[in-house]
């Protein structure tokens, strides 16, 4: 029985390094932030338990509503912008409708490697008065005084950020969908073509249904990813002007690390996790319903 004891010991020897680090950096802090969310802090010192007060204040704060709405805009752009665009790009490459598909794939995927901070600052320059976009518009419209004003508009301030998000992440979905399209048997496509199906029919009736599972998974990633967005927004606008472009992670950052209110910040992060898990559960439920309908 020495062999089984050696086996058990080896099992934990191999598993524990990963497990211990993972539990102590990710799982334990999540529990801790649940506890902290019921506390109040002043000058880095815990001053007492306040029950649900933090939550009540957050949920009534118009600044939080603004941040939440901006996160929703990011989420909608990811799910209904990046994913459909990714499907279309992948399909054009998959069907080899152009020459040099490898070239297009490589170039379009390139932004994925560039840090969000660099991307943010680059696009700030592009939209600035001496920027690429601004001056191209000036040349095209003949108006030498054109400047980008959309940041200052309360309702549309998020648009430049959403455009940059499309620029950055669409190719990720393209690559994921392309890898999955390449697993569709070519005989399936050929059969559809023999039946007289055009490209649009092949795309909507053959390719997209066979991607259902991957589309579902990428929506989940898009939803959970949209709550992550900190670096891009932080480097691009810092949430401003006023709080027009604030998102929940920036709201969290401001309250935790500028006002040093760790309890309040923890409550924000708990709310973020709850919303994210809720949305993912909802997506899963919708997907289950859709699947049942087609089976």
């Amino acid at each position: 029985m020495v062999e089984t004891r050696d086996k058990r010991v080896s099992y934990y020897l191999l598993l524990l390094p990963a497990l211990v680090i993972y539990l102590s950096v990710i799982i334990f802090p999540i529990g801790l932030s649940g506890v902290l969310s019921f506390t109040r802090w002043r000058n880095f010192v815990l001053t007492g338990f306040v029950g649900f007060d933090n939550y009540l204040v957050i949920l009534r704060d118009p600044e939080f509503h603004r941040a939440l709405w901006n996160n929703v805009q990011i989420m909608l752009t990811s799910v209904f912008g990046q994913i459909p665009l990714g499907v279309l790009l992948a399909y054009l490459l998959f069907r080899k409708l152009v020459r040099g598909t490898r070239f297009f794939e490589m170039v379009i995927f390139l932004p994925i490697t560039i840090s969000a901070v660099v991307v943010a600052l680059l696009w700030n320059r592009i939209f600035s008065p001496v920027g690429l976009y601004t001056n191209m518009v000036r040349v095209l419209t003949g108006n030498p005084d054109y400047v980008v004003r959309i940041f200052e508009n309360q309702d549309w301030a998020m648009v430049p950020i959403l455009v940059v998000l499309l620029w950055m992440h669409t190719s990720l979905y393209m690559v994921m969908f392309l890898a999955n399209m390449q697993r569709i048997p070519s005989s399936t496509i050929e059969a559809a073509k023999l039946d007289g199906a055009g490209e649009f029919t092949i795309l909507t009736r053959v390719v997209v249904p066979s991607l259902a599972n991957v589309l579902f998974i990428s929506s989940i990633f898009a939803i959970s990813g949209s709550f992550k967005s900190f670096d891009l927004v932080f480097a691009m606008t810092g949430g401003g002007p006023v709080n027009y472009t604030s998102v929940m992670s920036i709201y969290l950052y401001r309250h935790t690390f500028t006002f040093n209110n760790f309890g309040y910040g923890s409550a924000v992060s708990v709310i973020m996790v709850v919303i994210s898990v809720g949305l993912i559960t909802l997506t899963r439920w919708i997907y289950g319903r859709v699947q049942k309908k087609y089976d």
Binding site: V25, I30, M248, L252
Partner: peptide, 12 residues
């Protein structure tokens, strides 16, 4: 599914 935001305060 867990983002850095969710743990950054306690981690700090």
């Amino acid at each position: 599914l867990i983002t850095v935001n969710a743990v950054i305060t306690p981690l700090f």
